[in-house]
């Protein structure tokens, strides 16, 4: 983060507001899907079709229709915004009377109940996979990175290239044999398969980043710890982990996000509905239901909530860590 004053970055002659305007326009478009997701999650299909853009006004209209044979039918619909401040307009000539009333039930909280019931179990599975996976990924990566960073052991060059080569190797051809390997290990259709493959896949990147970081730590700390008779595990616990909290945090967030968003592997591995993670669960829902978009959107929103919580707590780490980690490469 630069501390230099920004006066000269933008030209003196140039005004600042056009930039603000363009940036804001972009950001608004960028946030538009988020807004739609939230707003539609409170609607049913009918009120979405009447009024797709804005949230519904808190009024409902009861319309009494007179059919040709003299029977009356009563229908309730959500009011339009044009009716919210005036009187109700009948939606077609057959409507005899239209009655507007204040009504909070136009917001379909049911959508959220339904969404939660739909994907709650999937979220539980995903949290289990993501948390366990992230924990083991980082634990093993810290151990591995310590091995590379501490001493130049015989063979460590060979091991290092074995890891680095994988960074260049495309993983796309692996998925078919991986499937049959997991079948042979009878890990198909288990959550542990996802965890273990995720942990294996995360090793290369995390060891790469952590090794560079641990090598930059002051050597005296390790020597002092060694003088005191600390074992290697003790050195990791008392020197490495406290000193590299921020980078471990950033890597943990990235690992968690990766596992949260993964859907290709679960799609191939999982068969039982009870084991579905969010990825497969959402794909399954996408195919299964006659689309009540309100319910779908509520489900989508609920799927984002754990990430929102993480984001709220770690925003600084997120924004800073992503930028800082990028510079180090």
């Amino acid at each position: 983060m630069s501390t230099a004053p920004k006066d000269f970055v933008g030209s003196h002659k140039q005004k600042d507001w056009p930039k603000h305007l363009i940036i804001c326009a972009f950001i608004i478009i960028e946030l538009f899907p988020l807004y739609m997701m939230f707003q539609v999650s409170f609607k049913d299909n009918a009120s979405f079709l009447r009024n797709p853009w804005l949230p519904s006004p808190p009024f409902s209209v009861v319309e009494t229709r007179l059919a040709v044979d003299g029977t009356e039918t009563v229908k309730t619909r959500v009011a339009d915004w044009s009716e919210a401040f005036g009187s109700a307009n009948p939606s077609d000539p057959a409507v005899k009377s239209a009655e507007k009333s204040f009504d909070l039930s136009v917001y379909k909280a049911k959508n959220w109940n339904f969404g939660l019931k739909l994907i709650g179990p999937y979220i539980a599975n995903t949290v289990f996979v993501a948390v366990t996976g992230t924990f083991f990924t980082l634990t093993l990566a810290i151990l591995g990175a310590y091995f590379f960073a501490r001493y130049k052991m015989p063979l460590s060059g060979v091991f290092w290239s074995a890891f680095i080569v994988l960074m260049l190797m495309p993983g796309v051809a692996n998925i078919v044999p991986l499937f049959s390997l997991l079948k042979d290990m009878s890990l198909l259709n288990t959550l542990w398969a996802l965890i273990i493959v995720g942990v294996a896949g995360g090793q290369v990147f995390n060891i790469f980043v952590l090794r560079n970081f641990i090598e930059d730590l002051p050597k005296d700390l390790f020597e002092a710890a060694e003088m005191d008779g600390a074992s290697h595990l003790a050195q990791i616990r008392n020197v490495v982990i406290p000193m590299s909290g921020s980078i471990i945090g950033t890597l943990a967030i990235l690992a968690f996000l990766g596992k949260w968003n993964d859907f290709l592997l679960p799609l191939i591995i999982l068969r039982d509905k009870e084991l579905f993670t969010l990825g497969v669960g959402l794909i399954y829902l996408d195919g299964e239901y006659v689309k009540q978009w309100g319910q779908m959107m509520a489900a989508y929103f609920i799927a984002s909530i754990p990430l929102i919580v993480i984001f709220l707590f770690c925003m600084r780490l997120f924004v800073r860590g992503l930028s800082a980690g990028a510079v180090k490469g």
Binding site: M37, N261, F263, L282, M296, Y300
Partner: peptide, 18 residues
């Protein structure tokens, strides 16, 4: 910057479905 990161809280799969 913060506003840019905000859309990241939506899982990529959800973005895809939206």
């Amino acid at each position: 910057r913060v506003m840019l990161v905000v859309p990241m809280i939506v899982p990529s799969l959800v973005t895809l479905f939206i």
